[in-house]
Design a protein around this nucleic acid. Structure first.
Lengths: 145, 145
DNA sequence: CACTACTATATTGTGCGCAATCTAATGGCG
DNA sequence: CGCCATTAGATTGCGCACAATATAGTAGTG
């Protein structure tokens, strides 16, 4: 393959590791989050809400780069679990405001160790992590604006 | 948030970019693969098969780090599209051997430009791509063995 | 040979992701 | 006011991912 189609190496050298490493990291998060019952996307959603609430579904989607087709059911599950509340905006009834509940805020302390534990699992040091993050940031900017 | 829980920064600085950049790359692949009707995981599967066939479902899973719950339906769709054939091994009837069809081999030429086009989209140069790939490889090794 | 442990794949159920479409509310504009 | 384009979310449908379980074939043991 490599001989007749050497360009396919890029996929093997970069795109596959990107794909596989992301899934591996997500699986590690699943372990670390098991006690809370949160999935990794749910955790990221709460992270965004802890950073400033309430947010509309659209604002959450901008930060997480997810559309309503993903967020609506995810937020309903977070609501069913008692972690967030959703309510229609009074000024503009098209908008839905999302905000952690008391219980949702309390989760923040429960997951405080997660990033540290993850950092110890991923096999690279802090400097490499910064470098990796900045390279990924460039990719994200190039593809997603 | 950052003040009371500064460690959550790692998630913002590294884990979120990893998550978001991967999805952005996958979306770009979807555009590049549109003419073929392949999804990105299907493309990776064919890439593995082009590299040496036949492979059992288990061998494919090892290379792609996917389990049978993902691969079985994916391979059935590739088979339905006429790109691969699946057959039980004669020596060991537990195994299923997967192999591209004539049409599946022909796809290799159709996608020959995909990696090049992708490389031009991701906003980093070749050296950075190598670096990124090696960092991701370390993460993958640390988490997945 | 019968039993048992193991292995390979398939199935089921849940939760994303995302394109496409739908519904309802808003904001002009004549 | 009535009309229409726009916007915000929700819904639908499909394809992954993956845990848990089921099924069937193989191999080892007495």
């Amino acid at each position: 393959m490599a001989r007749r189609h050497p360009q396919l190496d890029l996929d093997v050298q970069l795109c596959f590791p990107l794909y596989a490493a992301t899934r591996a990291v997500t699986r590690r998060y699943a372990e670390l989050l098991e006690d809370t019952g949160l999935t990794y996307p749910q955790y990221l959603t709460l992270l965004a809400l802890w950073g400033g609430s309430p947010l509309t579904v659209g604002e959450l989607g901008e930060r997480l780069r997810l559309d309503s087709g993903t967020l609506t059911p995810l937020l309903k599950r977070l609501e069913a679990a008692g972690h967030v509340v959703r309510r229609r905006s009074v000024e503009d009834e098209r908008r839905v405001l999302v905000e952690p509940t008391e219980q949702g805020w309390a989760l923040r302390d429960e997951v405080a160790q997660v990033p540290h534990d993850l950092a110890g699992s991923i096999g690279i040091d802090a400097d490499e992590a910064v470098l990796l993050g900045s390279l990924l940031g460039k990719v994200l900017t190039a593809l997603d604006g």
